[in-house]
Design a protein around this nucleic acid. Structure first.
Lengths: 217, 217
DNA sequence: ATGTGTTTTAAACTTATGTTTGAAACATGG
DNA sequence: CCATGTTTCAAACATAAGTTTAAAACACAT
């Protein structure tokens, strides 16, 4: 076999895919602005002009990476159950997916993290991300919370409870640097993640169940 | 009166102070990396070399700004009550301060926001911020939550409940761009902020109170 | 008025980073 | 083998942004 540098599999798909993967990791770690095309290409083993060739520019590559990230995150840690599941089960599935996406520190877990980062440091790509990824998940959780609160709950209470559930999960992402200082620990084990997810579910279910009762007294 | 450009009040204190204020706003809005010295100086009405003269470099100016921010945030929305206050009252005060720091959108409210931004996008200055600002507040909340949970609560449960309370508040900061898309609204009114703070307190108190009871059954 | 220290200034310097360019290398069909 | 389209490459280009420099302006005491 000759030392041919490229076969068709090694070119079209491979460079572009390597860029997608490398960009995902770098963007998730550093954010859009701080990530440099040179870093990404170094990691991908590609020439920097390849970004222009395959994607057009940095922003367009980013948008592609975001889309890819959502697909991957969803596949790895799905947040939905079938419609026959109870609200409690659905809440558990939702929270668990979110917590796992956040706390999984293996190399192949950048997908969810990139989405969380985009949420807090938006680029032009946020609008699309909201419509394609975030809104559907929001609506699902809203439905679950509304069922748990019961038919008498007003829209604002449902909404604020949705945020309360979501905020507990997302905290572990946004505050990870603080947690690392205040409560140093190593990487989260499977049990850690499960314990945290269970706590968030328990805390939230307790709140939702009791928050209605004081009304009777 | 001559057209003298500078008097002693307009020089030493004024330029440095103008830089502090302008830098605070720009850093809070854009973060350390994206904020440029040129933007800050433009806003402060100063020459860019003034940063080097008064602070040494960008990072040192940032550290000064952070320190100043904490003092101001704490003064404007204090999170502590006296030791005679009940745990519930102390929780309310803590949550309220946090929520108000986050949701106040007036021009003079960048202080808290800068701290939140540093938490999620840390620079070299985080360590100092944690020790001087965040850890004391964390310890205070931990004490409150431990009291609310009662003497039998283990350390891990207390900690996770602390995060659950905190996460609900911080959510409004981290997810502000998402909230703006999913639930468009104008600036938060005083009542909005109070309502949100009350909800977080109620949600959290309900959770904390009921999360222990199922143990008896 | 002079000397000295402080503060401000415009310009220059240095480095980093996204984008572009034109040629080389490659892949494939006729 | 040649023609054509695709992909990769090194170098150049253009711009941005932090830091430095040296001089001017200022403040104040003697």
């Amino acid at each position: 076999m000759s030392e041919s540098i490229r076969t068709s599999e090694q070119t079209t798909c491979a460079t572009r895919q390597r860029l997608l993967e490398a960009a995902g990791e770098v963007f998730a770690e550093q954010g859009f602005r701080a990530a440099t095309i040179r870093d990404i290409c170094r990691q991908a083993g590609a020439n920097i002009a390849a970004v222009n060739y395959h994607f057009g520019d940095k922003m367009k590559m980013y948008a592609e990476v975001l889309k890819y990230a959502y697909e991957k995150a969803r596949a790895k840690y799905p947040s939905e159950l079938g419609p026959q599941a109870t609200p409690e089960q659905r809440l558990q599935a939702f929270v668990q997916a979110l917590v796992y996406r956040i706390l999984d520190e293996t190399r192949l877990a950048w997908h969810g993290k990139l989405m969380f980062r985009e949420m807090m440091e938006p680029t032009e790509a946020l609008q699309t991300l909201v419509e394609e990824a975030i809104r559907p998940e929001f609506e699902r959780l809203r439905t679950v919370v509304a069922e748990l609160l019961g038919p008498g709950a007003d829209i604002e209470s449902v909404l604020q409870s949705v945020w309360s559930v979501t905020g507990q999960c997302l905290f572990y992402y946004h505050a990870r640097h603080i947690i690392a200082v205040l409560r140093p620990k190593g990487a989260y084990s499977q049990q850690d993640m499960q314990r945290i997810a269970d706590h968030v579910v328990k805390f939230s279910l307790s709140a939702i169940r009791c928050i209605e009762k004081p009304k009777a007294s």
